[in-house]
């Protein structure tokens, strides 16, 4: 079976992640959707790396993982700060902040 199939799989996962970001109100679940999209992109990088037969794609996927880890730390800290301020992590409520 060709590695191209993994690109299809990554497309499906990316769409599911995007749907989660668009549909869910819970900030943590929406954030997990972002993580799923990042991982889908990683899967395409690794699949293309296998197709080309070079390792650069894997190095790039590794960098994406490191950046994603840093992003998760800051993102979750922001979610906790918002929760402390508003006692809620619903994504709808910050929109009510505008005067």
């Amino acid at each position: 079976m060709s590695p191209v199939n993994f690109v299809y799989l990554a497309s499906v996962l990316f769409a599911i992640g995007a749907a989660a970001v668009l549909l869910r109100r819970n900030a943590i679940v929406a954030f997990m959707g972002v993580e799923l999209m990042l991982n889908a992109a990683n899967l395409t990088l690794v699949a293309f790396s296998r197709m080309i037969g070079e390792i650069n794609g894997q190095i790039m996927a590794f960098f994406v993982m490191v950046v994603a880890a840093a992003e998760v730390v800051v993102g979750l800290a922001i979610i906790i700060a918002v929760f402390r301020a508003r006692q809620s992590i619903s994504l709808d409520e910050p929109s009510e902040l505008k005067g």
Binding site: S11, F14, A15, I16, A19, L22, L23
Partner: peptide
């Protein structure tokens, strides 16, 4: 949102 996500998947 659901239509957009399914459309995105179909497009990809």
């Amino acid at each position: 949102a659901l239509a957009l996500a399914i459309g995105l998947g179909a497009l990809l």
